Amino acid sequence: MAIVLGPNRYGKAETRVVRVTRDGPTHHVKDLNVSVSLSGDMDRVHLAGDNAAVLTTDAQKNTVFAFARKHGVGEIEDFALLLARHFTDSQPTIHHARVEIEEYTWNRIAHQDGPPRPHSFVRSGAETRTCLVHSDGTGGAESVVSGLKDLVVMNSTGSEFHGFIKDEYTTLPETDDRILATAVTARWRHRGDPDDWGRSYCEARGRLLDAFAGTHSLSLQQTLYEMGRRVLAGCPEVCEVRLAMPNKHHFAVNLSPFGLDNPNEVFHAADRPYGLIEGTVADDAGPTPGPAWE
């Protein structure tokens, strides 16, 4: 039996970098979590312990910090592409770079009796902006996937669920009025670089929210599809959307033991288990194989 080395990669995961841009008394903050993975001519390091082809993960971490200083941090897609191209262009043994970034948003703290303070911030919500870049270097194949996670949304009505299979273990009652709540993880693949990554992100995010709020839902699957469809319809630079949406169940509490009715006003927000709905919505070109989503 022949034993061979399969696909492999290595890198520095979750480098936390905060970049403060000082514009006089007004400061701007970019707070990132950057993960780098590299692949290429790595057979010798695995088979013989020869590190001659290895760019250390410590150097990868230091590059993130140095580039944050030298180039600044604008849109995370641009920063990820800059890093990925650097690693593949500068090292002959590195043929492919994967860079994934999460961005944490900070808002300025408002003065009680005046404008926002120029250098005081509060972390906003749980939602996180994301991107994932693959690059074979300048002039080579590249892919960019933008997205978000932990976007918590809820409709307190306008959602139904009925007509499903009923077997001997089914206890869930049908309903024509329920709370629909989820924490959206959405990723969308670009067919090319948009003119403005930030504008593209805001447009896609806005369309996800509009679709969730504006869809009278007969199932979370239906809502998922409409959210993906709305992004594709309004963002020509996007060719595919992938969504994962846990169903954050809210069950009406039986208050009859206390002599009270409950006309869908008091609910128990269940923590787990939960339904998990996942799906892909793509244009006619369909999903593209390869490492774009990995």
Rank of each mutant, 00 (worst) to 15 (best):
K149N: 04
D150K: 15
A213F: 05
H162A: 12
G192P: 03
Y169F: 14
P173L: 15
T182F: 02
S146V: 14
P173F: 13
S146N: 13
L220F: 02
N155C: 07
T182K: 01
L224Q: 02
A181W: 02
D150Q: 15
T215K: 03
L151G: 00
D176V: 05
T223N: 00
F212P: 01
I165A: 14
S143D: 11
D196P: 08
Q221P: 08
W197C: 11
A204D: 05
A181H: 02
L208W: 00
V152Y: 11
L220S: 02
E142V: 12
P173M: 10
K149Y: 06
T171H: 12
R178N: 03
I165G: 14
R191H: 12
A213Y: 08
R199K: 11
R199H: 13
P173H: 08
R189A: 09
V145R: 01
L151T: 04
T223P: 02
E174S: 08
L209F: 05
K149W: 07
S217Q: 01
R205V: 12
L209S: 05
D193K: 14
T157N: 07
R187A: 05
T175S: 15
S217D: 01
P173D: 07
D196V: 10
D210C: 03
T171D: 07
L218F: 06
T182S: 07
R189G: 07
D167S: 10
W188D: 04
V152N: 15
V144P: 00
G147N: 13
V153L: 14
S219N: 04
F164W: 13
H216A: 02
S159C: 05
Y169T: 13
G163Y: 07
H216K: 04
G147D: 15
K149M: 08
F164C: 12
K166G: 08
D196R: 15
L209I: 12
H216Q: 05
T185N: 09
S217R: 00
L224N: 03
S200D: 05
G214N: 06
L180G: 02
T175H: 09
T170P: 06
W197S: 07
S143H: 13
S159Y: 01
N155H: 06
G214Q: 07
A186H: 04
V144F: 06
F212R: 01
R189D: 05
I165R: 15
A204E: 03
F164G: 09
F161D: 05
R187W: 04
Y201V: 08
R189H: 11
C202D: 14
F161A: 06
K166N: 15
G140C: 07
W188Q: 03
H162L: 15
S159N: 03
Q221C: 10
M154P: 04
